[in-house]
């Protein structure tokens, strides 16, 4: 799973990651590898250590008076890190919902982010088109539909169809390579839930049917996302890894 020693290329890659010269997609690839490659992590840490003295070359800039107040307000909405993890884990082991009000609030509650994504109708239309000309993949007229987009590339990766409000089908539109030691975890959250609920780990490769028996019936605008988590799933019971695909249910 991990290589004990790194080649020059990876040492250079780690150095470029720390310098900051890598383009966005390569940065993400390095970050994904870091999660499960201690040798690369060590190389990055070594570069951080080597270059850190040069952070002194940037002139200090006094923050606005209200920046700390803002940070404090944001902190107030979170419970301390370790306690939060503990309570989330306890919650996760007892009840699927509701979850404590914390964690990943930024993503799940970020209205501007959702609005920014509203302009992606073209891609959605394209996906719909694919489904229309390929009726074999639509056995029953779905009541709800979700297109899950990759936030980094704005490309559609999965479709969720629900022919009833208690059963959904997750259909891959392409291939997705899960990094070694990682897994895709599927989450959903309706507007009035306090936190997302895990629908389990997803094995990419084919359509997957899921019963939502323990959840309230599917509703319009319900969020779905796939995040990259440890192979055994999120340790906290809440999404912790990067969002790979995300979308919102639409009633048809």
């Amino acid at each position: 799973m991990t290589t004990p020693t790194l080649g020059d290329d990876d040492h250079v890659l780690a150095g470029e990651y720390v310098l900051g010269t890598l383009p966005h997609d390569e940065r993400r690839r390095v970050e994904q590898r870091l999660a499960h490659e201690p040798a690369l992590q060590k190389a990055v840490e070594a570069w951080e250590m080597r270059f850190h003295p040069y952070s002194a070359l940037a002139e200090p800039v006094a923050p606005s008076d209200y920046l700390w107040a803002r940070i404090q307000r944001s902190l107030a909405q979170k419970t301390p890190a370790t306690q939060a993890v503990k309570s989330a884990a306890q919650q996760a082991s007892t009840a699927p919902t509701p979850m404590p009000k914390r964690a990943r609030k930024g993503v799940w509650h970020s209205l501007p982010a959702w609005r920014a994504a509203a302009g992606l109708g073209m891609a959605a239309a394209l996906v719909m088109g694919i489904l229309l000309i390929n009726p074999s993949s639509v056995p029953v007229t779905p009541q709800y539909m979700v297109v899950l987009m990759a936030p980094q590339t704005d490309s559609a990766g999965w479709v969720v169809q629900a022919s009833t409000r208690q059963e959904i089908e997750l259909i891959p539109l392409g291939t997705f390579e899960v990094p070694e030691g990682k897994a895709l975890e599927f989450w959903t959250k309706a507007d009035d839930w306090q936190a997302p609920v895990s629908l389990g780990l997803i094995e990419p490769g084919g359509p997957i049917r899921l019963r939502l028996d323990e959840l309230p019936p599917l509703e319009d605008d319900q969020l779905f996302e796939l995040t990259l988590e440890d192979a055994t799933g999120s340790p906290t019971g809440l999404p912790t890894g990067p969002i790979e695909f995300i979308g919102r249910a639409v009633e048809i």
Partner: peptide, 8 residues
């Protein structure tokens, strides 16, 4: 209408 989401 399709509402598509993207994370920040």
């Amino acid at each position: 209408r399709m509402l598509l989401m993207r994370a920040t």
